[in-house]
Design a protein around this nucleic acid. Structure first.
Length: 423
RNA sequence: GGAGAGAUGGCUGAGUGGUCGAAAGCGCCGCAUUGCUAAUGCGGUGUGGGUGUUGAAGCCCACCUCGGGUUCGAAUCCCGAUCUCUCCGCCA
């Protein structure tokens, strides 16, 4: 969330940013409630101060056997007034918070202004799309032919939007996430984290999914827990309500997790294959930095994610999302899109974002500067490193051969018992 | 699921109705002293908010897990919630 003082002072900037993101919030009403709140607080505290003055005096007089009736009367008067003001204060705070939690993060200055993905900027490409001597098949046809991809059975078990992989294909997915975690922890300096897959609502507020994305997630109502849509949620909340020391920063975590998404707004799209699932696996990178380091960290995470694609030798492009495509909590987001020659599509396999202090403010994550002074909010960032089913798709479609077999990328062979292909 | 115990500041740990934002110790910071280090002495050391000054000082309010209540007055009493721990049961 944004700082209330900032909204007060930079009102126009906030308005402009909201418009650029295609979001709306009643800033005027917010400011008015904010003003009312401060008036009420000032008045209540004055009454309270007076009461605090009277109490000891009442005690003294009672003990001395003197008359305290006049003071008691004044106190009961003060309390009655405070009660009224307090009700008003509670209501104002509730209303303000409701608005504040729905105001999105401001986009960074260098994010292109735009409404849809057609306004996104392609900032880099890597690799040459492979050429085939035959018509490359879509991954589901490749998997079907191998007898290792079972959409009909998955549907019988859980309905549409779920996948069932068997044999070498299931193994290949496990090889991929092991490989990714190994690279990030051994070469990129991340600490591996195994975090809960069920979280409380407060964690989701901390990372920014709630309240806005309530309908996109699975909720266990009996226990008031939610299935995580990404490991970002538990991992970003690791240091919730902590004051870190400056020398602990930056913190870098890499975590594998399943991700659960209702995809309620996407019903009917991408129904075939593995590109849009209610449940999928992902390796996620999360960083916590000093504010002055977060811009560099964003590029670092992006490079870490790109490393995986490069070593898998999968052609991809880097997209800088425009204001309208940048998510609620993000200030700036890069997507990595791998080329899938079978579907003929660029698949988003990673999304790398800086949230600046937006999540830190919600999750109350701060650090104390080395030279002392007030705690400051940290900056948080994350990036997929990478999302598995789509990487699997890219591998199946890029590494397929005319005879229906699939070559195993070199770097994964140690994880696949040194097999060279799947057939 | 059953029975019990507990939750205090960065940490340990006192405190059962007023003088407690909270003893003491540890840690940390500053100063002093010692030819360095160690040791010692003195002082300081939480967070959020209001007001103010348009990055001051000051003043005020709140916070002893959270939310209610009793009281002129609550860290202390009452009720509820959450979390932690122990034992039993169950279970991968």
């Amino acid at each position: 969330m944004l700082d209330v003082g900032f909204i007060r002072q930079e009102t126009d900037l906030v308005r402009r940013a909201l418009r650029a993101k295609g979001e709306s919030a009643d800033i005027d009403w917010f400011l008015r409630l904010d003003k009312d709140l401060r008036a009420v607080v000032t008045e209540t505290e004055g009454l309270r101060a007076r009461q605090n003055q009277l109490s000891p005096e009442i005690g003294r007089r009672k003990r001395a056997g003197e008359d305290a009736d006049a003071l008691l009367e004044e106190v009961s008067d003060l309390k009655a007034k405070q009660k009224q003001l307090n009700d008003r204060k509670d209501q104002l705070e509730l209303d303000l918070r409701r608005i504040l939690m729905r105001i999105p993060n401001l986009p960074a200055d260098d994010v292109p202004v735009g409404h849809s993905d057609s306004d996104n900027a392609i900032v880099d490409t890597w690799g040459e799309p492979r050429t085939f001597e035959f018509e490359p098949k879509a991954h589901y046809d490749v998997g079907d032919a191998l007898g290792m991809f079972h959409s009909d059975r998955a549907a019988r078990i859980s309905g549409s939007g779920f996948s069932l992989l068997t044999g070498a294909l299931a193994q290949l997915e496990r090889a991929l996430w092991n490989y990714m975690l190994d690279i990030h922890t051994r070469e990129h300096g991340y600490t591996e984290a195994a975090a809960p897959y069920l979280v409380r609502g407060t964690s989701l507020e901390g990372s920014g999914q709630l309240p806005k994305l309530e309908g996109d997630m699975y909720r266990c109502r009996d226990d008031d827990l939610w299935l995580i849509p990404t490991a970002e949620v538990p991992v970003t909340n690791i240091h919730r309500q902590e004051i870190l020391t400056e020398d602990e920063l930056p913190l870098r975590y890499a975590a594998f997790s399943p991700c659960f998404r209702r995809e309620s707004g996407a019903a009917g799209t991408d129904t075939r294959g593995l590109t849009r699932m209610h449940q999928f696996h992902k390796v996620e990178m999360v960083a916590v930095t000093r504010p002055e380091d977060s811009d560099a960290e964003l590029l670092r995470i992006r490079a870490n994610a790109e490393t995986i694609l490069q070593r898998l030798d999968l052609p991809y492009r880097v997209v800088l999302l425009c204001t309208g495509d940048t998510s609620f909590a993000s200030a700036k987001t890069f997507d990595l899109e791998a080329w899938a020659p079978g579907c003929g599509k660029w698949l988003e396999v990673s999304s790398i974002s800086t949230f600046r202090d937006f999540q830190a403010r919600r999750a109350e994550m701060r650090y104390r500067p080395a030279e002392g002074g007030k705690p400051r909010h940290v900056h948080t960032l994350n990036g997929s490193g990478l999302a598995l089913p789509r990487v699997l798709v890219a591998i199946l479609e890029n590494y397929q051969r005319e005879d229906g077999s699939v070559a195993i990328p070199d770097v994964l062979r140690p994880y696949m018992g040194w097999k060279t292909d799947i057939r």
